[in-house]
Amino acid sequence: MTATRARWRRASIAGWLTLTLCGVTAGVRASTVAPAPPRKHLSDAERIQVGRDAAAQEPGWREQSLHNFPGDAWSQDDDFSASERSWVTGEAQRRDVPVEEVFRAIDEELRSSGPVRPPRKATTAPCKPRAFYD
């Protein structure tokens, strides 16, 4: 009986050690897993060009959104954002740069040409999700 108890006590200690080891392994694995290799950045001149390209596309996307979601200001802006994101992803792939580089270019273009006037916008409609949007 005593031997059994001692065996289970040892098993219990081993269990706690296993749990601790698992925690350490999880922490170490999460902390050390390698990020994606760094990619190249847009130069200042490229950023200006990308910003201008996006600005040139904007009226078309806005017009499309107006008809996709007539009378729904938030949905129109959201639809515009979807078009913009799709373009940004493609442009980032084409130039082999991270997407945030392209978004940064758009941000800088908006700031440098502010105040932005219609049909372009530097604002977005307040969030008013459709009651059911699947």
Binding site: D77, D78, S81, E100, F103, R104, D107, L110, R111, S113, G114, P115, V116, A122, T123, T124, A125, P126, C127, K128, P129
Partner: peptide
């Protein structure tokens, strides 16, 4: 980028101002 996104897509109508701007 330390930028706040005004464009917002939540499941509820977040109280937001129409006067927020991304070109100031």
């Amino acid at each position: 980028l330390n930028r706040g996104s005004i464009a917002c897509g939540e499941a509820w109508p977040v109280p937001m101002s129409e006067r927020l701007r991304g070109d100031l």
